[in-house]
């Protein structure tokens, strides 16, 4: 899965370049994001700006990524398209993840 990785302040911003996280791609998504975050900084921001569709498998994969992080790491989400935001809201996952309008805001919110 194409993934862009970029340092921003003390955080690592991972930007998905695929436009879907669904049943056909969720396992690969989970493995690649978890690998990119491993040994990384305290804050990992997942930038979903290109993602136009997520289903329940994709949602489960985002949860799995968070569970795979080291205890001192956190996973924040940025740039959710309306349908992605809707899936997080309906399932109440917006109470588990901090969701930001963009990566800069996410990083600024967690400056040590």
């Amino acid at each position: 899965m194409p993934l862009k990785s970029q340092k921003m302040g003390d955080a690592l911003v991972l930007t998905m370049t695929d436009d879907r996280i669904d049943a056909a791609s969720s396992i690969r998504f989970k493995d690649e994001i978890a690998a990119a975050a491993r040994g990384g900084p305290h804050q990992i921001v997942l930038d979903l700006t290109r993602v136009e569709f997520i289903d329940s498998s994709g949602l489960g994969a985002v949860v799995a990524v968070m569970k795979a992080l080291a205890p001192e790491q956190r996973l924040d989400l940025a740039n959710l398209a309306p349908i992605v935001d809707k899936v997080f809201r309906l399932t109440r996952m917006d109470s588990v993840f901090a969701i930001y309008p963009d990566a800069q805001t996410a990083v600024r919110a967690h400056v040590a």
Binding site: S56, S57, G60, A61, V63, R92
Partner: peptide, 19 residues
């Protein structure tokens, strides 16, 4: 799903039929 649980116990599936 009940999300009021420790991170390690968060559900990774079972959202489909709810949606």
């Amino acid at each position: 799903q009940d999300l009021n649980v420790p991170v390690k116990d968060l559900p990774e599936g079972g959202f489909g039929w709810f949606l």
